Simulated scan of single mutants.
Amino acid sequence: MTDLEHILPLWQELERAGAEYVLATVVEVQGSSYRRPGARMLLAADGRRAGTVSGGCLEAEVAKKAWWLTERGPVIERYSTLEDDGDLPYGSGCGGVIFILLERSATARPLLEALHAAWSAREPLAIATVLEGPHIGPRVFAGSAPALSQLTSWQANLEELACAAFEERKPREERIAIDGTETRIWVDYRTARPGLWIFGAGDDAKPLHNLARELGWFVAIADGRTHLATAQRFPAADIIVPLHIENLHRTAPAELDLHPGDAAVLATHSYEQDTHILAFLLSRALERRPNYIGILGPQRRTREALVDAARLLGLTPTTALVDEWLEQINGPTGLDLGADTPASIALSILAEIQKSLTAASALPLKQVRAMRPVESQR
């Protein structure tokens, strides 16, 4: 998601200036590649660029030819980083072949508008794009982007594919008939921008805030200690919410707009605050709770806080109820990385959140790739 945080400001600047631009999008990868389909790079005529389409071996080559390649409209270009293929001056790169859609403002603008809307709303988006034939470039969206008012028959088919990918929450490729010709359609599914709610504004929250912002996540700071929860201490936070702890589970402020895909980390180092915050989070319907709830401290302390949170909610804190809640909470929060400093602890917490958001294994890549069939590694 970091690419969009750099691409969107440059795009808005170019739009305000009425300047032309080229958008490069990875649409297919064969073999190994640093970036996957959906990676994007925005090019300005003055040489500025934002985003990446590789690990650094393709960007200059793409930028060098993008303008004249798109003089007559969108095109898909093949770039090879294989040792014995292609004309890149760097020799062996990632060891794969990458296909990149290059397009100018006319067709890229609707896409960037849709990406901006989804980014701002922190909502997912599905994008169905035509990749072949005379219609290359047009798109239909499913999600927060406005729907097209009038659709041709093939655009209606695109919309159906986009909606299916949106419901399935994964990309897909299909072929549909456009003007009587079977045409390749790629549907890119983009998850919502991750949101991290850090409950606690102490010094150890700073590296957690900094690392999450470096990842391009939406970051919120919330604490009952208003002298700590300030813009001066957390200048890059998207929102800072002062908490009235005693009534939090009854009358939470509207600013506490947690999305189901968000993560919440309790790092107040205050048993009273943690108890009321847990009561607030657990009072939300199960489908509205954050994807990840983590809490610092030993599990014994978390269990005691859950007992008191149940009492705040007017519930009997039975062992079964507390055990059920413990299953929904990562406590202690973080992966076992040998962390012993605020920065390394923050890294271990964000690593576990990333694992949770992506449903990944968190195993070493060497081990994961050894477990895959040979065909899937090509």
Rank of each mutant, 00 (worst) to 15 (best):
G216H: 04
F199M: 05
A162C: 06
L111M: 06
P124R: 02
T275I: 04
L58Q: 04
E375K: 09
H6V: 15
D323Q: 08
P146S: 01
I185L: 02
Y292T: 05
A106T: 14
I277G: 00
G47Q: 07
I178G: 11
G261T: 03
V75M: 00
V219N: 07
V22Y: 10
G38P: 12
E182M: 13
G143I: 05
L306T: 00
G96K: 15
T81P: 02
L69S: 01
E123N: 14
R250C: 12
D223A: 03
E327K: 00
L42T: 02
G261F: 10
P74V: 03
W217D: 05
W119E: 03
E214W: 13
D46N: 06
S54A: 10
L326A: 07
R78V: 04
G180W: 03
G56K: 03
M1E: 05
T2K: 08
S32M: 04
G51T: 08
E83F: 14
L82E: 04
T341W: 10
L350I: 05
M1H: 15
Q30S: 11
L196G: 15
G86F: 12
S32H: 14
V140C: 12
R303F: 03
S92F: 14
K170L: 09
I127Y: 13
Y189W: 15
W197H: 07
L357D: 10
E287T: 14
D87Y: 10
T81Q: 09
L315K: 13
N247I: 12
R311Q: 11
T226W: 10
W154S: 01
R288L: 14
K65S: 08
L125I: 06
L315M: 14
D84F: 08
A310W: 03
L337D: 08
E246K: 00
T341L: 09
E113S: 06
P253N: 00
Q12D: 04
D257Q: 09
K366P: 11
W68V: 01
A285C: 12
A19V: 15
P37I: 07
L215D: 05
E214H: 06
A50E: 00
D203Y: 14
V62Q: 01
P290D: 05
C57S: 14
E182I: 12
L10Y: 13
F218A: 11
R104C: 07
T2G: 14
T333M: 08
I353L: 05
R104F: 07
R190M: 11
A44F: 07
T183S: 03
Y189N: 15
G143Y: 09
P37T: 15
A142E: 12
V22R: 09
I98A: 09
G96L: 00
A212K: 07
A252S: 10
E159W: 13
L111G: 10
N247Y: 11
W154P: 09
G334M: 12
H116S: 15
L350G: 13
L266N: 00
I127L: 08
I240F: 01
L112I: 04
A320N: 02
L111A: 06
A165S: 10
T333K: 09
E159Q: 15
A360L: 04
R250E: 01
M41A: 08
V29L: 04
A252L: 07
